[in-house]
Amino acid sequence: MTSPLVSIRGLEKRFDLSGSLLEQITFEGGRFRRKQEAVHAINGVDLEVQKGEALCVVGESGCGKSTVARTVMGLISPSAGEIHYDGQRIDNLDGKAALPYRRKMQMIFQNPYASLNPRMTIQQTLEEPIRFHHPDWSQTQVRDKIHEVMHSVGIDPDWGSRFGHEFSGGQRQRIAIARALAVDPEFIVADEPISALDVSIQAQVLNLLMDAQESRGLTYLFITHDLAVVEHFGTRVAVMYLGRVCELADTRNLFAAPRHPYTQALLSAIPKLEDDRPNHIRLKGEVPTPVNLPSGCVFHGRCPYANERCRQEVPQLIATDGGTQVACHAVEEGRL
């Protein structure tokens, strides 16, 4: 068993909603009370990303996918838990100590419009991170590197003198990928990198990411809500619901035999080309807000198999015979 490149341990993240101390004080029933509200975005996530794999994280809006991505990248700090990279804890590093990881780990965002500085030419956009991480490189070394990444993502060298706003969404995402690759990263976190793109452009960008993985031996943490993309691209899949991982499986297993009731509903809801009618598993209600988390299993309010134990006790991820890990009492008890 190889050691994981990235491991996420006991991760929790709360966002405080209650504002300043004064705003928290209310007068209720004849006494002052301090009321604190928080969004429980991540509630205990353990994940390991193996070298060379593409670990996909899926789940519905607000389930905490981006928060996991941003915590791994050190863009926000966890409320509890740790992030390790290649055996080294990194969530508590500062300034200089964090610098090597800021090169090895790169992020690609959903919105290629926001992630490029409009006042920089493409040449400058690509040059900046190289100069930052390799201050000792000669002009020629920098130029060769830019040339190499431009070539590998299919950017016309003529684009160098133009500005980001002159390009289409797909072209900008290409530039953003080139920028991430320019510093020779090992690990890439991609948060919905193709969701904002036209269907005919999505395949171009997905091919590019797969090529880069193969030629550069990259490891991906890939966040998306598009399950067809996951099935095509993912090595393994983590399905999240309300800040928890409810199922973790090899991609093939997940699609062939989803075990968690939520995963089953999610997969059945994907509209397929061969369908002549919608034929999804019906769920009760909608996703509760992460401000008041349900007790026990976070899915119990919508789950057709929920019983008393589900309302009380939080299910833990447990390995099943097929190797899939599932957090569900019904699966553990053999009722499902």
Binding site: A203, L206, M210, D211
Partner: peptide, 12 residues
């Protein structure tokens, strides 16, 4: 170009 039309892992 839909991902489901390609073999998993192959270029689309």
């Amino acid at each position: 170009a839909l991902p489901q039309m390609g073999e998993p892992g192959a270029r689309l």
